[in-house]
Simulated assay, not measured.
Amino acid sequence: MADKLKFALALALLVAGVVGFYLLSEQALVLRVLSVLAGVAAGVAVAWFSEPGRRFVGFAREAITETKKVVWPSRKETVQTTGLVFAFVVVMAIFLWLTDKSLEWVLYDLVLGWK
């Protein structure tokens, strides 16, 4: 139950920051943005101390660790793969255009006799 209250309070703080942005419409933009940032910071701080917040932080750390394990392609591999994709798209476009024109010729000229 306490975690639900903490989560509700975190959401309320986040909403308060956004509402503050609109209530301070006559103020400088810096104050309005600081209002939103303060609401986000306060909401994150409260959520941090709830069980779902701790689980999320653990998940985020594991995601960062897994991202570091990824073997990213080199620039050369990326350019080659992109070139192959473009070439395939061009070949498919030509094939579909030829198929369309062939069916158009068969239907309109041969079957229906429209010229």
Rank of each mutant, 00 (worst) to 15 (best):
A45Y: 14
W48H: 12
T65W: 13
V19R: 11
S102A: 14
V44S: 03
L96Y: 09
I64K: 11
L24D: 07
V44P: 07
L110A: 06
A63F: 07
G43H: 01
V111T: 04
L9C: 09
W97S: 15
Y108C: 09
A60G: 02
P73L: 03
A93P: 09
L14D: 05
L37Y: 04
L5W: 09
V90W: 15
F59V: 13
F49H: 15
V111C: 04
M1S: 12
M92V: 12
A93K: 06
E26Y: 13
L84P: 06
A10D: 05
L24F: 08
T78W: 11
A28H: 12
V30H: 05
A87K: 14
V40S: 01
G53M: 03
V57H: 08
A38N: 04
M1I: 11
W48G: 01
A28R: 06
W72V: 15
A93Y: 01
K68V: 10
F59N: 06
L13G: 08
T78F: 13
W114T: 10
I64G: 08
V70S: 00
A12N: 03
T67F: 08
Q80F: 06
R54Q: 15
V71P: 03
V33I: 15
A42M: 04
P73D: 01
L96K: 09
Y108F: 09
V71S: 10
E26L: 09
G113E: 02
K69M: 11
G83Q: 14
L29Y: 07
F49S: 06
R55K: 14
V15P: 00
A60V: 08
G17R: 03
W48A: 06
K69N: 14
R54A: 11
V46M: 03
F56T: 04
S35W: 00
G43P: 02
S102C: 07
A8S: 10
G113Y: 10
F59L: 14
V106D: 00
